[in-house]
Design a protein around this nucleic acid. Structure first.
Length: 279
DNA sequence: AGGGGTACCTGCGGGC
DNA sequence: TGCCCGCAGGTACCCC
């Protein structure tokens, strides 16, 4: 589910809500989501710890504990972090998918709920102990991600641009929704080969990445139709109504009125306007 | 290198 | 109504 804007929203919420709290107890209902260490070690190392800064790297949430260890959570496709658990925040959430529950000393609870169980939880000293984190590419909203660097990155690649944008080792944080949206905003066809781009096209793509992602963060992510993503209060993201192509196959392009097409690239639905995004 | 397939899971909607 | 299929915001691992 969640791509950079959704994960960034959750990170910001947690930073406001749980920083400084002390963990009284932790329960894991489905052991499979815990990748390291063992359940026993995890519980004993997390109990009585105090939450410090909350960070984000790509689509991973990193919760620093006062022991120096880091609780790292990847939300997979359908993972949610809800805090605090109450009737309102859990209104649309099925409690049988509550896989990890952290209870703080004030008795408020943080829950990790994940219908499809693709989410993952780790407790490590160094974030690079998580293979998925160690190999992540550049952060697109970071100020050291510049147009000049992006030009150098794109030049040498022979991938289809859509494949490249969702490759986390290349740029981290874009997934299927935002890669589609970025390409539409930049007027670039998803099958274009990266090495064929002019500097001007790379510049447009660069602006598209920065602007789509920062607007989506501002609108607290996308909850498409009635699908899974919620913030920590159980509220929907508001960027979905601004999506131009994602999940709009067969509908009219808002810019030019042409019919939005759907193709598969590496097994994933790819939406584009054939008029605005020519090959 | 880059592309493609499969697997991991549950739930939903469409077609018959 | 039920059943089967394909689809879903992600990633890892396999093969070519």
């Amino acid at each position: 589910m969640p791509e950079l804007p959704e994960v960034e929203t959750i990170k910001g919420d947690l930073q406001k809500k749980i920083k400084g709290k002390k963990i009284k107890n932790v329960v894991i209902n489905i052991e499979k989501i815990l990748k390291k260490p063992s359940l026993k070690e995890f519980v004993s190392k997390v109990k009585n710890r105090i939450i410090q800064e909350i960070n984000r790297r790509g689509k991973y949430i990193i919760i620093n504990l006062d022991s120096g260890e880091k609780l790292i959570i990847h939300l997979g496709m359908t993972g949610l972090l809800i805090y605090p658990i109450d009737q309102k925040s859990m209104a649309n959430i099925i409690p049988k998918h509550n896989h990890l529950i952290i209870t703080f000393t004030d008795d408020n609870q943080l829950v990790f709920n994940d219908v499809r169980r693709f989410g993952k939880v780790y407790l490590v000293c160094d974030i690079n102990e998580v293979e998925g984190v160690a190999k992540l590419g550049i952060e697109p909203l970071d100020e050291n991600f510049t147009k000049e660097i992006f030009i150098r990155m794109i030049r040498k690649k022979k991938n289809k641009i859509k494949s490249l944008l969702i490759k986390q080792e290349f740029i981290t944080g874009l997934g299927n929704i935002y890669a589609n949206e970025v390409l539409h905003r930049s007027n670039i066809h998803p099958l274009r080969v990266a090495s064929s781009f002019t500097d001007e096209e790379i510049g447009k793509l660069f602006q598209g990445i920065k602007s789509v992602l920062s607007e989506a963060v501002e609108f607290r992510g996308s909850t498409v139709a009635d699908e899974a993503y919620r913030d920590t209060d159980g509220e929907k993201g508001k960027f979905a109504e601004r999506l131009q192509v994602y999940a709009r196959g067969g509908k009219n392009c808002f810019k030019c009125g042409s019919t939005i097409e759907v193709i598969k690239i590496e097994g994933r639905s790819t939406f584009f306007c054939p008029q605005c995004q020519k090959l």
